[in-house]
Amino acid sequence: MTDTTTHMTNSSADVVNSSSLRERIEEPFMRGGQIALLVLLALVFFLPVAGTLLTAIRTIPDITQNGSWALPLSYEWSNLSLAFMKMLPYLKASAIITLPSVAGTLLVSMMAGYALSRMRFEGRIWMFLVIVSLSFVPVHTQLIPVFKLMSDLGLHDTFWAQIIVHIMRQIPFAVLIMTNFFNTVPGELREAGRIDGASEWTIFQRIYVPVARPALSALIVLEFTWIWNDLLWGLVLTQGAGKKPVTVGILAFQGEYEIAWNMVASGAVIAAIPTLIVFLAFQKHFIRGMTMGSVKG
């Protein structure tokens, strides 16, 4: 009995030794290989963006003569400035739509999240689950009636229509995020506030909203990107050029320039710049927001 145990310990120790030895030899190769593979993957992954940037600053003759991947003969910054001038109305419209939508989403969802997380009331869990379910509702389920409703209300082809719809679409996800966040804030803060003589609204506004800053910044970055990037509502709820967001603008732009690919690429770059800047500047918040409630793409 004692023999067997000793024997077994020995052999398992051997295994550990030999495998660690093997790993020690393999390690540098494995590592080198992994790094090379990763860099290669990253390059491939980056090609579409790199190609677009490259195309945006070249001339068509240059592209047709030297191929799409050659270094530019000359830098045509005018492509970008022309694209910018053309896209400017759309960019403006996108800003007018997106900023109030984000603000509205935040306010409405913070209030709801606060109630769902911090208050005890009949139907609370039920309400929460409804909201979770709603965050999966496809646009397709609402597209037609919303279009109809906005026409009936005389809001078709207004910024209002898009703002309201974006807030509506973002409510479930944002409420989910805020509820989950407020769940992590100690409930005693609310009670301390009550004892200090604060009304429910004061507690919300002066204690919970400031405390929610980390969640808010994540949510702002996410919502900004999502709302800015929406295409379908922009198509459905607008008629004239003035109210169309930049995502619709890029399609119009594409239609106008057809095979002037340097211009189309420039348009894409211009249209993407706002969300790219936000993303690059607030990548951490963006990622945190996604992992906080990640149900969307």
Partner: peptide, 20 residues
């Protein structure tokens, strides 16, 4: 950042880029 970047792009832009 390279791997995350496409998340910042709208489907409209992705469509235009990949069309090219």
């Amino acid at each position: 950042t390279v791997f995350f970047l496409p998340l910042a792009l709208s489907f409209a832009i992705v469509g235009v880029i990949w069309g090219w």
